[in-house]
Amino acid sequence: MSFLGFGGAPAQPSEAKIAAAEAELDLVTDMFNRLVDNCHQKCISKSYNEGDVNKNESLCIDRCVSKYFEVNVKVGENMQKLGSSGAFGGR
């Protein structure tokens, strides 16, 4: 509904939206995979004596996951701060 080019900002094309959503999904999936990898390596004993997860392992996983998320959020916040203050060489 632009009149002589003075209309509101043109709506974002849906392709860009989809690309953004894809990027985000990639990000989330990547983080999830890393988390599973790290916590598996840290917590699950390699001898695989039992099919079930035992108490120690499950406690370890609980803590590992919560710490991972916490650190992830903190790092993300800091990066955002750095990005907005232009500390990345103006990028």
């Binding site: 035992n54 120690n56 499950s58």
Partner: peptide
């Protein structure tokens, strides 16, 4: 031996 007991995925220790 208490720590080696299995714990279901929907259980909290």
């Amino acid at each position: 031996k208490y720590g080696a007991k299995p714990l279901g995925p929907n259980q909290l220790s």
